[in-house]
Design a protein around this nucleic acid. Structure first.
Lengths: 337, 337
DNA sequence: AGTCCGTGTCGAAGCGCTTCGACAACCTAT
DNA sequence: ATAGGTTGTCGAAGCGCTTCGACACGGACT
């Protein structure tokens, strides 16, 4: 393993000079810089991460805490994680993958050990037990998601309240009056995951203003469960003509079942999905949807975090404006008779 | 930040004693151990990761290189990644998330900097450009996937050749003669990803022995593409009665299209999927499938790696035996006429 | 009583880097 | 010519930990 000292000797300079060439924290003459860089090349030098972390108290690592549960939202999570990793690299950071399993302890461990310089938390619940620790630790952090109390925190998320409202508006505009929301699995609501509840809030509030009747049904993914759910919905509200789906694994079953029941989309029934664009365009009907900008969220989270680490950033809640893309799954409500 | 020295002072022992209490590398009297542990508790001490890495030349970090592309296989990748992370934690390791973006350079960087003690590589191509580097670096590593040349490497993977064979056997046994394989996206084959080609090999070889005719069609996910692909298949081989699908995002479209065309599953046409169990059980027909044991793969990979790091492990290729679960999507070939 | 050994503890060195203060060399303005 | 300011480089200290050799002590053996 090549060390700084060896590079220095090879280049005929002192160790500190090599260090300054690497960090750029002091000016170095062009000649010296080139000699040092040549030596680094020739010897194949890579700075030792541990030594660097010890001396500088900076690990250049960002911890990313992903949910343990794979019961939901998998492609979105993956996309966010990858966006976080690639964006972090462009800023010189690596990403440490923590699962929710350790829970709040992970926050303590990472904070205490200096393993990471900062944290990104995903799958934040409204009253998340990791937050008090995070606040008191003073560790720079960004949440992807929005808890109930955001004081002292930086959050990046899609504006799900506005998303819900947008869906309501689109359906109302098309003349729908009775709509059903196919939500995430019940467990997601039970643990008060912010995005699910906020979508519903936004949708309900706006629906009230617009005179829509809303029926909300949490729903596990899968065909069989969907069949039961759908039957109950039409049982309870036979006049339902609009659907909002916020559950990737419910999209295909819903469309298949509607078709099977002879309800044409969008002629008889309209469907809006809240999902990544890829899901919306690959379904059997090209879905009108509000996109979940997973990559953007990951990217923004890292950029805020890096800004904080550089002493620039501020605490802030960034809500990305939802965009509804009209495709082939929504249309005017069928005229009665 | 609490340091070892402070703990030592608080407990009235020397720093090295505290270190030995922590590592267990020398025997410590019960009394001293307890006093030290109490001090650690009271002061909330966490060893500094950088200092530890520097002094011991061990970072207790495993690097996991995931594919950058999200064009394929997402839930499986995520499941593996999470299994890797949780298993690693039980052995005292953390996981560093690297994307394929940096390519071979990432291997150099991690190896050279001592950032990680070992690597796990996913999405390995038959002739992967990272492998020569990995071999010469001497870095302990495990591949999830199987390259063409495995000398000097440890690999964990599902036995996809046997998987292909198993599918052929099941369909042959049911009397099918003309079968079609719906594969991964063309790009997956173009970059010679091992698992896709090996499944096909196994399936073709066994089919030849059993007298099956095989038509292979790579296929992007999505409904529209699937429609075209399916039409071509029945055009070319109207007598096709068996399908093998190895592409999660093709499952739902395939089933929907078959139903739409009035081909009943399993009465008219049989379908086997190679996918995680969850996908198989959530489809509109409960699918006969060969499971991809994502969690098991992640777990095994970590365990082999830890064994190597402890000086136990050996280079070895671990192929997990495929298991075909018969569900409701395969049946005897319809009698002609 | 003296020797030997195992056990538990300590002190010190050093892992490879960053960073601070010092300083030599040079340039510019008086 | 001299004071003052830059610019580029160096030496040394120290980050918090692990680990090695040393050593004190008490028990078991001659």
């Amino acid at each position: 393993m090549v060390t700084l000292a060896e590079v220095a000797q090879h280049a005929g300079v002192s160790a500190s000079t090599v260090s300054y060439v690497l960090s750029g924290k002091r000016s170095i003459s062009a000649g010296t810089r080139q000699r040092v860089e040549r030596s680094i090349q020739e010897l194949g030098y890579h700075p030792n991460a541990g030594a660097r972390a010890l001396a500088s108290s900076r690990s250049n690592i960002i911890a990313l805490m992903v949910p343990l549960r794979t019961d939901m939202y998998v492609p979105v999570m993956m996309e966010i994680a990858i966006a976080v990793a690639t964006t972090a690299r462009t800023h010189g950071y690596d990403v440490l993958l923590l699962t929710g399993e350790e829970g709040p302890d992970a926050v303590r461990r990472v904070t205490g050990s200096g393993l990471a310089d900062a944290m990104i938390l995903m799958d934040v619940e409204l009253d998340d037990e990791r937050l008090p620790l995070l606040r008191q630790s003073g560790q720079p952090s960004v949440l992807i998601g929005l808890p109930a109390d955001t004081t002292g925190l930086t959050c990046v998320d899609l504006d799900f309240t506005a998303t819900g409202a947008l869906c309501a508006e689109h359906l109302a505009m098309l003349g729908h009056r009775d709509i059903a929301v196919i939500g995430e699995a019940p467990a997601v609501y039970e643990r008060h995951t912010g995005f699910a509840e906020r979508t519903l809030d936004g949708l309900r509030t706006r629906s009230r203003e617009l005179g829509l009747r809303v029926l909300h049904r949490p729903c596990e993914g899968g065909y069989d469960v969907m069949a039961v759910t759908l039957a109950r919905i039409f049982d309870e509200r036979p006049g339902t003509t609009g659907f909002v789906v916020q559950n990737e694994s419910a999209v295909a079953p819903l469309l298949a079942l509607l078709r099977q029941q002879g309800r044409a989309v969008p002629e008889d029934v309209s469907v809006i999905a809240v999902c990544p664009d890829q899901v919306a365009t690959q379904a059997s009907v090209r879905l009108t949807s509000v996109a979940i900008p997973a990559q953007e969220m990951g990217r923004r989270a890292v950029e805020h975090l890096v800004a904080k680490l550089d002493g620039r950033g501020t605490d802030e809640v960034v809500l990305l404006a939802p965009e509804l893309t009209v495709r082939a799954s929504t249309g005017p409500v069928p005229s009665a008779g």
